[in-house]
């Protein structure tokens, strides 16, 4: 092995990297920035109380026993609303029965179910005079509509739309730009809107069937219910698809290199993966975090799809997410068309 060869290859590689500022920023600058931002966001603080629901018909003493715990945020709900709250991840557990014979209901596949069980049992024990055992009955939630899988499947459809919008649109477009194909097209009388619309259609044609396949798997194999209007669901998938396609186009509208577009894609995707409510509920966030989560198109999409799947609603029930996604898509397309780089 000739060290001079290795050295020269290393130097060349590094130089190329160093002279691609996008690559440099997204590889080194961005993670550093993330570390700083997240460091400030997650200052050491006592853990936030875990939300649990107590059935409205449960006796007063059971309720007070739980509210006494500083680690629990107790919400009193009617039986029907409790199911929904559990399904949507707004609460980690539903507590019913009596102080003597409490019944705890949660889906053990949910990450926070076990913590909730321990905290609730401790709260009940602390309330009793002197140390003693609690004979709480744990009910593993397995009714369709209240399980974690019922929560997860709509979230996965959302992620699929997000991923398709980002990955399928960005890369090829940037490649066509870097290989002069966009310029070549630009000198023909083709309209920019014609090209972009056709491109998006071609790239997106598989997205809707893919979403349907995920939904079919969930509903047919896993028994996830679809209680609302199918039409409303389809409309939502379409609006979500357009919103993420718009975002993908926006991200690819100026980037000149693969590194550039990949970095921007990460910036868009990371927050949505983290707080978009696909894997973990973002319904109990508070303050600025709640605000951030609410303005993510993925949050809106997931919320809408869960509404229409887990509850018997129609288009009216998901008007807010629908309008949000449509508006988001419009803004993205308008800006992308405005700033699009052909040359």
């Amino acid at each position: 092995m000739n060290p001079r060869v290795v050295w020269t290859v290393a130097r060349t590689t590094f130089r190329e990297f160093w002279r691609t500022p996008e690559a440099l920023f997204w590889t080194y600058g961005f993670p550093l920035l993330m570390a700083i931002v997240l460091g400030f966001a997650f200052q050491p603080a006592p853990p936030a109380p875990l939300p649990v629901a107590v059935l409205a018909e449960a006796p007063e003493d059971l309720r007070t026993a739980l509210t006494a715990s500083s680690r629990l945020a107790v919400e009193v709900v009617a039986a029907a609303a409790a199911d929904a709250a559990l399904a949507r991840g707004r609460v980690a557990m539903v507590v019913g029965g009596s102080l003597a014979e409490p019944s705890l209901r949660a889906d053990p596949t949910r990450p926070e179910a076990e913590t909730a069980r321990l905290l609730v049992e401790r709260a009940l024990r602390d309330r009793r005079d002197g140390p003693g055992t609690v004979h709480a009955r744990f009910v593993a939630e397995d009714r369709p509509g209240a399980r974690y899988i019922d929560f997860l499947i709509p979230g996965l459809v959302g992620l699929n739309l997000l991923g398709a919008g980002m990955w399928s649109i960005g890369f090829t477009l940037v490649m066509m730009r870097s290989q002069q194909l966009l310029r070549r097209l630009l000198v023909t009388p083709i309209r920019r809107s014609e090209f972009l619309l056709g491109y998006l259609a071609g790239r997106f044609v598989l997205v809707v069937p893919e979403s349907l396949a995920i939904l079919a798997f969930g509903c047919l194999v896993q028994g996830v219910p679809f209680r609302g209007s199918l039409f409303a669901g389809a409309l939502l998938v379409l609006a979500g698809g357009l919103a993420f396609a718009g975002l993908g186009l926006l991200v690819a509208s100026r980037a000149k290199t693969m590194e550039g577009v990949a970095g921007l894609m990460n910036v868009c995707q990371l927050p949505m993966w983290l707080i978009g409510g696909s894997f973990f509920a973002n319904e109990r966030f508070e303050g600025w975090l709640r605000w951030c989560a609410d303005v993510l198109p993925l949050t809106q999409f997931n919320r809408g799809l869960r509404d229409v799947m887990l509850e018997p609603g129609g288009v009216g029930a998901i008007a807010v997410p629908l309008l949000f996604l449509a508006g988001f898509a419009t803004v993205c397309f308008a800006v992308a068309l405005r700033i699009f780089r052909w040359n």
Partner: peptide, 11 residues
């Protein structure tokens, strides 16, 4: 007009 650029890579 008709244009043939110095380099274009088609798909």
């Amino acid at each position: 007009i008709g244009v043939c650029l110095q380099e274009t890579k088609f798909l």
